[in-house]
Amino acid sequence: MILQGVFTRKVFTLSEVKEAKWDVDHLIVDPKTKAGDINLNQYDQEDRLWLIRYFRHELPPSSQVNWDRFCLRFAIPLQDRLQAELRPPESDEILVTRQRYDRIGIPLNVILSLIGFYISWKLNHFAVLILPAFSIGFWLLLRYTQTRHACEAT
């Protein structure tokens, strides 16, 4: 395992880990030597859950400290939130996803860009190119303010 920080790089194998302490929102690997601190809040919810499951499975149970408390306060609520987010939409709801914005935004931006380039080439008026830029910017704003998971809109 490699833990890369701004100024540090720590390399060790999970079989070398003598103790792993599960804390409020992070995992401290070998707290006595401070070999690694994995802050789970720096990851998406799906990645957090994957990391928790991975370390829980790979580290020997005897070396894991505070697992029960961590599981009760952090892991189970995280799993419940993820399962609640993945419910299918009801009949009066619309599922808004990044892919939905992409299906609309990509063809629209390609068409607007081609029209903008054509008009600017024919009229030698390059200020027209700002219109596709606004459209692309608005599409990117919508796309990246939407979380990776779907959001329901009624």
Rank of each mutant, 00 (worst) to 15 (best):
M1F: 03
L3A: 06
L3I: 10
V6P: 07
F12M: 03
T13H: 12
L14P: 07
E16A: 08
A20F: 00
A20L: 00
A20H: 00
A20W: 00
K21S: 06
K21G: 00
W22P: 00
V24G: 05
V24M: 09
H26D: 11
I28T: 15
I28S: 12
V29P: 05
T33E: 15
T33H: 09
K34V: 11
A35S: 14
N39G: 07
Q45W: 10
E46A: 15
L49I: 15
W50N: 13
L51Y: 08
R53S: 08
Y54P: 06
F55V: 01
R56W: 03
H57S: 14
H57E: 13
E58Y: 05
P61S: 06
P61E: 09
Q64L: 00
W67K: 00
D68V: 07
R69N: 09
F70E: 00
C71D: 00
C71K: 04
R73S: 10
I76M: 11
I76P: 02
I76K: 11
L78A: 07
Q79A: 12
R81N: 11
R81Y: 05
L82M: 15
L82D: 08
L86M: 14
P88M: 02
E90P: 01
S91G: 04
S91Y: 11
I94V: 15
I94E: 06
V96L: 13
V96I: 14
R98L: 09
G105H: 10
I106T: 15
P107S: 10
V110R: 01
I111P: 02
S113N: 03
L114T: 05
L114Y: 05
I115K: 00
I115D: 01
G116P: 01
G116F: 00
G116V: 02
I119P: 01
S120W: 04
S120T: 09
K122E: 14
L123E: 14
N124L: 10
H125Y: 06
H125T: 09
F126P: 01
V128C: 03
L131S: 06
P132I: 07
F134P: 05
F138D: 11
L142Q: 11
Y144V: 03
T145A: 01
H149Q: 14
H149T: 06
A150H: 11
A153Q: 11
T154M: 14
T154K: 15
